[in-house]
């Protein structure tokens, strides 16, 4: 269970560039729910994700994960509860480390304390081989290859595997397919749905595509100007199509959607 209450974030406070990125955003996500998050540029999606990951600290409001107030936890500590796949396929892994080393790094995420023992043991390697086989990308015999040799799609698929290797209370997906070509993006989305479903992960997926926002997950939240302006789930959501979503947004907010990018897909 994730409980966000009245989150406030202001960038460049007290200057002419002052931007209120989040204006009292509140959102509750019950365990096991898969939320898709949409919103135009500047709506606060990225800020919200960074707050949840611990990269940013809000100036007001609180984040409670499973009864624990984590608002002031820095990113490394937050990583015990929260895992993440970045938008940039290069951001989620180390290009100069091997695939198995990257997996080992991610596998130790929740343990906190790391020791002097070998990071990649034979037992771990066998485990990684089994897990990476299911990606269907012929990577099972390339565990010793450097991550930098992989294509963007392969790298993002491995990043997804890394983020779900160790248990987490919240999985953050930051437009993780937007930098991939459509075919690979579809494969990575399919993989995401499989893994999230299997592990019953509480998930928050930011997406630019309304289509994707409605097709994936169990609930859709739209951010606008730092607030959640639309929150639909269940039957109401099942019957919804992209044009309906746009109409709903306009009803709620009383203005035209300005971002073409939201209509794509």
């Amino acid at each position: 269970m994730i409980r966000c209450e009245n989150l406030q974030v202001t960038f460049n406070k007290g200057t002419a560039m002052e931007t209120r990125a989040l204006r009292g955003l509140s959102l509750d996500v019950p365990a096991g729910e898969f939320v898709t998050l949409i919103g135009s540029n500047g709506s606060g999606k990225s800020t919200f994700l960074n707050i949840l990951a611990g990269d940013l600290t809000p100036e007001a409001g609180s984040i409670v994960i499973d009864g624990e107030d984590v608002t002031d936890w820095p990113a490394p500590k937050r990583a015990r509860l929260v895992s993440r796949v970045f938008q940039d396929p290069l951001a989620g892994s180390c290009g100069n480390l091997t695939i198995e080393e990257n997996l080992a790094l991610a596998g130790a995420r929740v343990r906190g304390r790391r020791g002097l023992g070998l990071a990649v043991s034979r037992k771990l390697r066998d485990d990684f081989r089994g897990r990476i086989e299911r990606l269907g990308m012929n990577l099972e015999n390339r565990l010793g290859d450097r991550m930098g040799l992989l294509s963007g799609g392969q790298r993002q698929a491995v990043s997804l595997l890394m983020a779900t290797l160790a248990p987490s209370k919240l999985l953050l997906l930051d437009e993780h397919t937007s930098a991939l070509d459509p075919r690979i993006a579809a494969a990575v989305i399919g993989l995401t749905l499989d893994i999230v479903g299997e592990q019953k992960l509480t998930t928050l997926m930011v997406t630019h595509s309304m289509r994707q926002a409605l097709d994936a997950g169990t609930r859709t939240v739209m951010l606008h100007a730092g607030q959640a302006v639309l929150d639909i789930a269940g039957e109401r959501r099942d019957g919804l199509d992209v044009p309906d979503l746009i109409r709903l947004f306009q009803q709620v907010h009383g203005e035209e959607l300005d971002s073409d990018s939201l209509l794509l897909g």
């Binding site: 490394p76 970045f86 790391r114």
Partner: peptide, 27 residues
């Protein structure tokens, strides 16, 4: 040392600090 868990965490810290922090490493 570099092949160990701490060594690996150190290499990640230099190569991609944001990723390191997202994986629980105190950079």
């Amino acid at each position: 040392f570099m092949a160990g868990e701490i060594g690996l965490a150190m290499r990640a810290t230099g190569a991609n600090p944001r990723m390191a922090r997202a994986n629980g490493i105190n950079t």
